[in-house]
Each structure stands twice: as C-alpha cells, then as structure tokens.
Design a protein around this nucleic acid. Structure first.
Lengths: 259, 259
DNA sequence: TCAATAGTGTCTTTGAGACACTATCCG
DNA sequence: CGGATAGTGTCTCAAAGACACTATTGA
C-alpha cells in the first residue's frame, strides 16, 4: 500500500494551549457572521451481480423533487466529519465497520438552490453480503441500488460526485488493497477478478491477473520474506457444473475502516 | 498525467430545476440550525535554496498566540471554495495564476478551541522567482518561509495538514507533472532534479533521472509519435566554474491552474 | 592544474502484457 | 460426451536501478 494512500496521519490534537489562550477563550463569543451549511454526502458502493452499484435515494421534497440523490445530511455541531459520514451510512444501510474515505469537498455557491451548502463527500465500500435491509431516510421516498454505468438523472451536483468517485476508485485500485472491502472473508480468484473488472470497466487476462497478485500458497514452505497480499486457504468451494475452486483470504484486511 | 489526477470533472451545474422546485423555493427560508464556520487554509510551497519551504504566519492573537500557522480565512457566502483559496493566496503573496489544489477537509470538532470550524485545506505551488513581497495579513504579525523539514511549533492541527501535504505531493510527483509548477519557464535538468530531490527527501541518480524524462531533443528530426514532457531549448546558460548547461522547458505547462 | 559541475551508456532485474491448452465436474 | 469453468507457463518488451568516467570552464 502506497504511503500516499493513508489518511492524514499524526496526532489530530491541537497543540498545547497557552495561558493567554485560556484568558481569551473566557471572553470569546462565537461571531455572528453568516455561515454556510455543511453536509456530508456518502457514495455507497458495492459489487452485485457482476456490476458496480451505488445506493441512491429518490428525493420526495424539493428541490429536485423525485430525482435521485446520494444520501447525506447535516454535520452535527459536536460531530467530526468522519463521524457524521459514519452515522449517515449507518442510518441508510444499518451497517458499521466499513471502509469509508473522504473524497472531496464540493462548495460551489449555487450547488444548492436553497442556500449555501458545502458538502464533504465520502465514499464507502460495502460487501454485498453484509447488507441488511435498506431504510428510507426521512427525506427519501425510495432507496435503490443503481449501476454506476447506467445512472438516472441526479439532483444537485451529484453526477459530478459520482464521476469523481469512480475516478478515485480506479486510481486506488492500482496501488492499494481497496478491492478487499467489496468481498467477503473468503472468495475465489475469479470473484476477485470480477471486482477489478467491474471497477475498471474492462476485461482482464486471467493469467496475468493472477500473476500480479502476491499469494502465499498452501504447500510452499515459503520463507516469508516478502509481504503477501493473499493467502490460499485449505478449503475449496464446490463448483456448479465444474470442478471445485480454491478459496483465498486477504492478509492484513484492516485498512482505513472508520467504525 | 494519470486520469485520476484530475479535479472532479463534468459540469458543475446542478441539474434542471423542476417546476415544483421553484414553488418550494419561493417559500423557503434558510433554517435557523446552528452552523459551523468554514474556512480555507492554504499551504503555500516553494523551492528555495535547495529546500522545500512553506509560508507560515505568526499569530498575533489567541488562540495559539505567537505560534506559527498556515494562512487561511473564512469562505464568503457567495464564494466558491476554489475562489476563497485563490483570494487568500493572493492576499498573502500577491501572486495569481498558480497551481492550486484541494487537499483535504479537516473537521474535528475540537480543532479550534473557540468554536466549530471546518477547514478546507488547499496547497499551492509557487516558483520562487514569481514571488512579490509578502504581506502580513490582518491577523498575522509576521510572515516567513520555513523549511518543511524543520518546522516550528504550529497552531491548531496545522502540523497534520503539512504532513498530509507532503504525502500528497510526494505521491503526485510520481505520476504527474506537478514539479513544473515550482520552476521558471526555462531551467536546467539539474535544477529539475533538485526539485524532485527536495520533495522526495532523497538523492537521485543523475543518469537514471534523466533517462526517466521524456525529452524532445534539439537535433533529432524525431517523429513526434510519443508525447514529450520536456523540450530542449537552443539556448544554454553559462555555468559558474564550469561549462555552459543546456536549458529546457516544459511542454503542456498548464495543469490545474486556478487563476 | 585544480575545483566544480555537466553530460553520457550498459548491464541486470523486474513487472506488464500477449497468448492456449488441459483438468474437473455435472448432467 | 458435451458444457462450463478452473488452473497453469513462456516469451517479449519496457522501465527501473546500479554504476564511473570525460569534458568544460574559471580561478
């Protein structure tokens, strides 16, 4: 995993307050400047039926009534951005402990016709199996998975947000373990390849794809000098009209899970 | 340049408003929810004296009085985030037309002890020669270039912002033309190599570095099939205690300049 | 003639990509 | 035995990395 892949590191705590600060704070009143609203929007992605799908809600209120939109909501005054994103994701899908990453902040003054709204967009990767029932939020009439390759008309600048999500996802696929987040604990190499294919939008060569994975094989006494990405499991899964297929799992599964 | 390198593409315009929207908007009043403040902070970088430097201001007011901070300010209610960043950059340095890119949005509820402040961090790359005089902003007592490798104690979470900037910059160096932004129109290959070295924090091999650049040479009739990054110029610059050195310039200089 | 720096080529290793056949299981 | 899919190796090419000497200039 590339270093540049990490979330901003280091302590998030502000530096030590000085004595003068405390004095000042005692007299401080929040200013009365006009302020924008701040929301988080969550692009929730999964791979189902060999397709990359995104969770959208149909707006039942203006503006953009009846158009589809990425779920989102206001950031609480005592809530971090990550926490707000996690909360929205949980409200929408009931899931926890999934990969969640800040994408970009969209702040065009006219992106929301009501008032100034700045939105911090996140994207989440879910494995399809983990999904519980979808819940319609208070402002959503309907919730549905849409193919990223066949989207309806979208509200606000949400089309731009989805376009950028796909760009980011494709970029990270090359140098990170991000695909892991879309698969269950145990999977076949063909399933893994399908994930890459639906994200990249192109077919891959089976042999080259497998060569590119660093696999710790079962019956190799293998000195573990190199760091493996995948581990072959002693189990297999029975095929349908064909032979059994080997199962694998990821080593070092945890990466940027915001739980 | 990698595709994933681009700023979110596509139209920034919201989709068409529906008739019902207009009706609704007529009745709409901005809600009275409590709102966070939103600022932009600009990490302004340049390469001077074979060092990577960042522009910091010393705070003359609490909180964190007398500590150094990244310049920033509030986002205007009718101002896009990019425009706010551009404005702050101009106020601080007097320069325009420089590379500016959104970095990350920091929104920990306690990052500012006064009140809830969410900041959208940007970074800017300046060529040292373009610099006019630095101006101290209203809340800054002093303005100074600091080495990224030897920073003072910083206010708020600004250390984290700088750490992340360096990570991003290093990451992009590998697959983009970003280094161009730190050099004047004409430069020597050694100067270019120095830029890479101070950003990466390591020495590079001269021959391998030059091999990695795709250069359109002067006296090659060269069919221009491939896209070159650099172009050799007919001029040279006299060396000091040594021979003259060839000058080069970048082809396709413009990239993500927010002017 | 010495100090300082520009400029230049080869070999090796590694990863990417093109490409086709056999084995297994089910019906 | 036919349909469906798993599993597997070689060759070629390109890029990355290790590595050292000569040429030019000014003092």
């Amino acid at each position: 995993m590339a270093e540049s892949d990490l979330k901003p590191a280091g302590s998030a705590l502000p530096a030590q307050l000085q004595p003068a600060d405390l004095e000042y704070l005692a007299k401080y009143h929040a200013s009365d400047y006009e302020r924008p609203s701040v929301t988080v929007d969550i692009v929730i992605l999964t791979v189902m039926e060999q397709d990359l799908r995104v969770l959208l809600i149909r707006r039942k209120l203006p503006p953009y009534q009846d158009l589809w939109a990425v779920p989102g909501g206001f950031v609480g005054m005592r809530e971090s951005l990550d926490a707000a994103a996690r909360r929205e994701l949980h409200e929408e899908t009931g899931v926890d402990n999934v990969y969640l990453e800040q994408l970009y902040t969209f702040g065009d003054p006219d992106r929301d016709p009501r008032t100034r709204v700045i939105t911090v967009a996140y994207y989440a990767l879910l494995e399809a199996g983990k999904l519980k029932t979808l819940r319609a939020g208070s402002d959503a009439g309907e919730v549905k998975w849409w193919s990223m390759y066949s989207l309806p008309e979208l509200a606000f600048d949400h089309r731009q947000i989805l376009d950028y999500t796909l760009q980011r996802l494709r970029g990270k696929l090359g140098y990170s373990n991000i695909a892991f987040q879309l698969l269950p604990e145990k999977f076949t190499l063909t399933e893994l390849q399908r994930v890459y294919e639906v994200i990249l939008g192109e077919k891959l060569d089976k042999r080259n794809f497998r060569k590119s994975l660093s696999i710790r094989e079962l019956n190799r006494p293998g000195r573990d000098k190199k760091s493996y990405m995948l581990e072959e499991l002693p189990e297999t899964r029975p095929g349908g009209n064909y032979g059994p297929t080997k199962l694998f799992r990821f080593i070092d599964r945890v990466e940027k899970i915001i739980s």
